[in-house]
């Protein structure tokens, strides 16, 4: 049960991530950081865009890692259509 709840949460987070990323990187939100301010000699907007970008990469990496673990657990307990499809694919590949 606990694992299923975790999988549910990972799925929800993975679905929300691109929308959150879009909000952060598109106007009007991005305009908040367009002020002519320097951070350690670098304009704030440059720091913001690249910082957010790095954060998105990190978040995706983290979610992909958890998704892999959750998937692995799911394989052991019960499988879904996708896994069955993948397996039948593998079977077909082997038959070739």
């Amino acid at each position: 049960m606990r694992r299923r709840a975790d999988a549910e949460r990972v799925r929800a987070a993975a679905t929300l991530l691109p929308f959150a990323a879009a909000v952060l990187l598109l106007p009007p939100f991005v305009l908040l950081f367009a002020a002519p301010v320097l951070v350690a000699g670098i304009p704030l907007i440059v720091v913001y865009i690249f910082g957010t970008w790095a954060a998105i990469v990190l978040a995706t990496w983290w979610l992909a890692r958890i998704a892999a673990i959750v998937e692995h657990v799911r394989d052991d307990t019960h499988d879904t259509g996708a896994e069955a499809a993948n397996r039948s694919m593998a079977g077909r590949g082997a038959a070739r």
């Binding site: 799925r11 993975a14 679905t15 991530l17 691109p18 929308f19 990323a21 879009a22 990187l25 970008w53 998105i56 990469v57 978040a59 995706t60 979610l63 998704a67």
Partner: peptide
């Protein structure tokens, strides 16, 4: 980046 981050 957004498309790949939203791979799911």
């Amino acid at each position: 980046t957004i498309v790949f981050a939203g791979w799911w």
